[in-house]
Design a protein around this nucleic acid. Structure first.
Length: 1200
RNA sequence: GGGCGCAUAGCUCAGUUGGCUAGAGCGCGGCUGUCACAUAGCCGAGGUCACAGGUUCGAGUCCUGUUGCGCCCACCA
């Protein structure tokens, strides 16, 4: 800890003699003394439990409006970091503010199973601790291991959230793989499957040949390796009419006659060739085309020609595709020339669809031609490798031909041997080698994180969601409010807009663009993963390609296959199963099961028949498995279940079975009405990197799975006037939320409700060097460490004040050594020129024994960062801001309580509500300030400007309340019932306004205040509908416009200006704070109002104010363009200091006057600027001139 | 390659439709052991608003370009 004494506060008691219930409060706010107790209070009162009945039932005018936030479920891979702390703080602020405003507020908590990430962590742990791999376990045993790990981290995460004060409805906590969510996942999969929006397709995955598994992109790393470009010559041939007939060589002569540029440079009767450049020569075995750019001048003369792959003998077509980069010499534009690939391109690209993602894309575009050349559908996809990445003819490669010498070799050996073979073989009819040349080339290659093996793009069967369908992608874009959609897009796609369109808004608005562009360029979503940790694909399959063609007859003969068909028909009728074959995409929806089965029997080649189950009915499963069906071994992408979060957490598809499943998990939960009451949710707060992965998919699914008739109309939570908040809290307004909802109405087909109205994208926290925080960089911060050193409220306050509208915010991290409590700065910093340099360390001017680090504060002279500091914790001095603020509030409250609890001497409080006009200037002023502050807070909250909110509260509490108001009333509060009433009210307002940011300290103070009633003041409404016993359910303060008092603000402002001017003089002359000085107002000037004079005495340490001239030594200063003087400053006024002060002032004023005069002298200024502004400038000039005169005469009157 | 953000005091950041004599917190310097708070109070110093053009009576703010830093997505024969 930065301050070793901190957790053991010095003298806890001020032991005030006339104890008033306040004396026992320690002079410091010690978070640990309160946080547990306050949390328990909240738990005991069930304050965070949201009840859908309050939204849906009873007479409309008694229903509460709903407010709902879904937590972005944290991954169970690790404890939460500061980024989570930020996001969850912001959500809690929103939820708590709305709860206080009278909304039925639901914050839905939960965690994400995080598929690959979690499995990888557990696998790594098993390997490190026990040298065991996943395949050393049975699948269910391994999953159980992951489950244990998940339980551990889910508990840790939950604990972190609770310690942060998150007011989630903890009775509803979900996990993306619990039974309730699993049910929703299976239902969603089934419906999409049934609707033909899920299909089976081939895809290249990142294959780890060592672990023999697919790995995700984020499980790979790129590393530069030294390699080469190999330039291979592919001989050109002409293909005779009939298939499989020998191809005829094409000579250079012939090519020349076709107009081929450069053909004449070669020997005429030699076989012609094209040159391909490749970094992976061994994959030539799987080539099924050579591509050329259609703008390549050679393309036309090659049209209709083929290439014969050396040794393999495969004849492959030459196709034209603009993906191919033109060689530098042929580039037509500067842009094409600048393409880095143009440098080494030959203009010909070998196309290996089964071993390169881009080539696979090209294949998709030229499928008919390429497949035809190999004699059938899908035949151009030639996989030449086994799962261990050795060359193999057992995995889809049938025309090995003369290439058998490569079979069985590793990728690396095959590469060498292929190159050698090309080098040693000559072109037919000539002497030229098939190897044109080799160029060294360094490029990045994808490696597997875990095995470090080079990733092989490997062709495999995967499941897809057809998100390109307009009911999904287009529906998501239609969800955007019109002003956030790009021009001209409003009318595209799914036709006329529906009533549920155009309801989703991004904050800040710029992120709508990210969202929209993603859907414009979306590709079908591969949802299968070759993992064990996740939702298993609910599909059973069997390949019927071996079944005899007489299959049809078998039905009438009552054979097993017939039974199968009958059963499947029956179950399909009941909606329990859905069958597909995917022989022709998409999904053959119109075929009957028998037709599909028949087609299977007739289909050449392997083609499984798929049965999707709606629920895991053991009877159906047993039946299928007895008929040779097996369950798909893949699991679903973790984002599939995340995409259902707004549905699954609320019991979709139906509450009753969800309740049964929750009970089965021993987490009983009441789902009735939840979906109807709370979906669409109100606000989603998340990070920008998952706008595509998560926000998009939730939008698509919610709109797809819920019906268009879903009303989902809910009062806007944003942009509320004080009046509408008032109406809400005091229960005057009807709500139509939840009327006539029916989750079983026909689905919206992409016209259902949006999952959330507002999407708030928060900033990313980086460390002091602009790096992302992460465990591996060692700059990660555990929120619990901050809570320990600074308190939960301090952390929350600081995080809120950092939550600006920019993309990134920086948080310099200090290391704390737990042994000594010493804070170390990072030793390296990035300076303004971007260089990383040692943090400058210099002697502290104050204390030569201490060292000062310019950037990061003071460290002890002898303390040195030690390289082995494993127990150091990360924190940041930034949190001091929040800690100090909480402490300030604590002490302001202590003082207020002392004042309020002391016996009053000013007579009884008046009956009825106090009129602000009857109050003193300072009280009218603070009420006006509170009104302005509350308005600012409301506006900031409506616009997700959390830093504005925090800043407004900081200024209200620290500057207005502490620095001025409390100081103003301190001397006379005992005699002033009005001031006491105002103080009590002001404190109450501040506590309520601040509660969403700093719930613990405000709740703790509020509990102490409860014995002191809040006297009513006209225009201030403070009671919630619930007669709350906790601040967290108390009503949001509603401050009427009548509290705004411009006159009071102006007068009080005058006083503040006068006091500041006096203080300046006092400080200049080193007048001790206790010494009273005398103020001499200029004779003949309008006298200051008495209240103003009175307050000035209090704040500026004046003994009196007179209009008599000063006797003896005095100092002059300008105020409102008149000369005032102070006397009794000291026994002797230091003329030197005074001269210095005045000269400085004169210089400043002269400069100001020159600026103002210059502006007014400009004729077009007076012409074109608004008159009000011109007048303002004139006033400023007059005042400055007056002040200058004062200063000059004061200077002149100084003794020489 | 596409999209986006940032550049303002030593540090971290505000600065809304142009009106600014550019603010806050921390840090720095001075005074204060004081009675709510030294996690404090009062006062002060500290800025060519990245650079270059432009629009305007007026630019930190709007436009164009340049430089630097960073993020997201896509890709790397």
């Amino acid at each position: 800890m930065p301050d070793a004494a901190q957790s053991h506060p010095s003298p806890t008691s001020t032991s005030s003699p006339n104890s008033n219930g306040v004396g026992e409060l320690p002079p410091r706010y010690v978070p640990a003394d309160h946080e547990k107790r306050v949390w328990q209070q909240w738990m005991d009162s069930h304050a965070f439990h949201a009840d859908p009945k309050k939204v849906l039932e009873g007479p409309p005018e008694r229903r509460a409006p709903a407010y709902c936030v879904l937590i972005p479920p944290p991954n169970v891979t690790a404890r939460l970091h500061l980024g989570h702390a930020l996001n969850n703080t912001l959500q809690d602020v929103l939820v708590r503010a709305h709860r206080m405003r009278g909304f039925e507020a639901l914050w839905m908590p939960g965690t994400d199973h995080a598929g690959i990430a979690t499995q990888a962590v557990v696998e790594r742990r098993l390997w490190e601790e026990r040298k065991l791999r996943r395949h050393d376990f049975k699948r269910e045993d391994f999953v159980a291991k992951v489950q244990e790990f998940k339980d551990e981290y889910e508990a840790a995460i939950t604990d972190q959230l609770k310690q942060m004060g998150c007011s989630c409805d903890w009775d509803r906590q979900r996990f993306t793989m619990d039974s309730v969510c699993a049910r929703a996942v299976q239902e969603a999969f089934f419906r999409l499957f049934q609707d033909g929006l899920i299909y089976r397709g081939k895809r290249l995955v990142n294959w780890d040949p060592v672990l023999q598994t697919a790995v995700a992109d984020d499980e790979c790393f790129d590393e530069d390796v030294d390699s080469s470009f190999w330039y291979l010559r592919y001989p050109l041939v002409r293909k005779p009419g009939e298939p499989h007939a020998d191809a005829q060589p094409v000579t250079w002569d012939e090519l020349a006659s076709r107009g081929y540029q450069g053909a004449e440079e070669h020997r005429g009767d030699e076989q012609a060739w094209v040159i391909v450049a490749t970094t992976r020569p061994e994959t030539y075995l799987g080539d099924s085309a050579v591509a050329v750019n259609p703008h390549d001048p050679r393309a036309a003369s090659l049209r209709g020609l083929f290439v014969e792959l050396p040794l393999v003998g495969r004849v492959i077509p030459i196709i034209e595709d603009s993906y191919v980069v033109l060689p530098e010499a042929m580039a037509r534009t500067e842009e094409e020339k600048a393409d880095p690939k143009a440098k080494f391109a030959t203009g010909f690209l070998k196309v290996t669809p089964a071993h390169d993602p881009n080539d696979y894309e090209i294949y998709q575009r030229h499928k008919p031609v390429m497949d035809a050349a190999q004699g059938g559908e899908g035949r151009a996809l030639i996989n030449v490798m086994a799962p261990d990445a050795t060359i193999s003819d057992k995995h889809g490669w049938t025309d090995v031909g003369g290439a058998h010498l490569f079979v069985g070799l590793s990728r690396e050996d095959a590469r060498k041997k292929v190159v050698a073979a090309f080098k040693s073989h000559a072109i037919q009819g000539g002497s030229a080698s098939l190897l044109e040349g080799i160029k060294p080339h360094r490029h990045s290659v994808k490696h597997s994180d875990r095995s470090k093996a080079i990733i092989e793009p490997y062709l495999s069967d995967q499941w897809y969601v057809k998100v390109t369908d307009h009911r999904l992608a287009q529906a998501a874009n239609n969800a955007l409010v019109p002003e956030q959609r790009s021009q001209g897009r409003q009318q595209t796609g799914a036709g006329k807009s529906s009533s549920t369109d155009e309801q989703m808004r991004f904050f800040p608005a710029r992120y709508a663009k990210t969202f929209e562009q993603w859907h414009d360029n979306i590709r079908d979503w591969c949802i299968s993963r070759q993992l064990w940790w996740g939702h298993r694909v609910p599909v059973w399959s069997r390949d019927f390609s071996g079944v005899p063609a007489t299959f049809k007859d078998s039905v009438s003969q009552g054979l097993a296959m017939g039974t199968l068909q009958l059963k499947l028909d029956e179950w399909a009728e009941e909606g329990k199963v859905c069958c597909r074959d995917f022989i022709s995409r998409p999904g053959s929806a119109s075929l009957t099961i028998s037709a599909m089965l028949e087609r299977h029997a007739a289909h050449a080649g392997p083609a499984p028949f798929f049965v999707c189950l709606r629920i895991d009915d053991p009877g159906i499963i047993a039946f299928l498995e007895s008929h040779g069906f097996t369950r798909d071994s893949d699991v679903l992408d973790t984002w599939f279940s995340s995409a259902l979060w707004p549905l699954s957490t609320m019991g979709w598809p139906d509450a009753a079975s969800s309740e049964a499943l929750a009970a089965k998990d021993n987490k009983p939960c009441d789902f009735r009405g939840v979906l109807e009451a709370f979906n669409p949710t109100s606000s989603l707060s998340t990070a920008r990197e998952i706008i595509t992965l998560w926000v998009s998919r939730m939008t698509m699914f919610n709109r797809y799975f819920l019906p268009e008739s879903w009303p989902g109309h809910r009062p806007e939570s944003r942009e509320e006037s004080a009046d509408s908040v008032r109406a809400r809290i005091f229960g005057a307004k009807a709500s139509d939320a939840g009327a006539d909802r029916d989750a079983n109405a026909p689905m919206g087909q992409g016209r259902g409700p949006v999952p959330f109205r507002d999407v708030f994208i928060h900033a990313v926290i980086q460390d002091g060097q602009g790096q992302k925080m992460s465990k591996s960089l060692g700059n990660g911060v555990d929120p619990l460490d901050i809570i320990e050193t600074h308190g939960a409220d301090a952390m929350r306050f600081t995080l809120c004040s950092m939550a600006t509208q920019t993309q990134d915010v920086r948080m310099p991290v200090d290391l704390i050594c737990p042994h000594t409590g010493v804070t170390f700065p990072p030793r390296m910093i990035t300076n303004r020129t971007g260089d990383v340099v040692p943090a400058p360390i210099q002697d502290s001017p104050k204390d030569p024994a201490r060292k000062m680090v310019t950037t990061y504060g003071v460290v002890s002279g002898e303390a040195k960062p030690s390289p082995d500091m494993p127990l150091a914790k990360n924190t940041s001095s930034k949190f001091d801001l929040g800690r100090n603020f909480c402490n300030k509030l604590w002490n302001a409250s202590r003082l207020s309580m002392t004042i309020l609890a002391a016996p009053a001497s000013g007579g009884p409080s008046p009956a009825g509500a106090l009129a602000p006009a009857s109050l003193g200037l300072e009280s009218r002023w603070i009420l006006s300030r509170l009104h302005a502050g509350a308005a600012k807070v409301d506006e900031a909250l409506a616009n997700y400007e959390f830093s504005v909110y925090a800043q407004a509260m900081y200024e209200l509490v620290w500057n207005d309340l502490c620095d001025w108001y409390l100081e103003s009333i301190k001397p006379h509060a005992a005699e002033s019932p009005g001031a006491r009433a105002t103080l009590r009210t002001a404190l109450e307002i501040v506590l309520r306004l601040l509660h969403p940011i700093a719930p613990f300290v405000t709740e703790a103070i509020w509990a102490r205040l409860a014995t002191l009633p809040v006297p009513p003041i006209q225009g201030v409404e403070l009671v919630g509908p619930r007669k709350a016993r906790t601040l967290c359910t108390a009503g949001w303060p509603v401050l009427g416009a009548s509290l705004r008092d411009q006159a009071a603000e102006r007068e009080y402002g005058r006083m503040q200006a006068l006091v500041t001017a006096i203080r300046e003089v006092r400080a200049q002359h080193n007048v001790p704070p206790k010494r009273k000085v005398k103020l001499h107002a200029p004779a003949g000037s309008a006298p200051l109002p008495p209240e103003l004079m009175h307050l000035s005495c209090t704040h500026a340490g004046l003994s009196s104010i007179t209009s008599t001239p000063a006797q003896g030594a005095s100092v002059a200063f300008g105020f409102e363009a008149s000369e005032f003087r102070l006397s009794d400053l000291a026994d002797h006024v230091d003329a030197g200091a005074e001269r210095e002060r005045l000269e400085k002032q004169i210089a400043e004023l002269t400069k100001t006057i020159a600026t103002l005069e210059g502006r007014l002298a400009n004729p077009s200024y007076a012409d074109k600027a608004p008159p009000k502004l011109v007048q303002q400038t004139r006033d400023q000039l007059t005042r400055a001139q007056g002040d200058l005169a004062t200063a000059q005469s004061a200077l002149a009157s100084l003794p020489a």
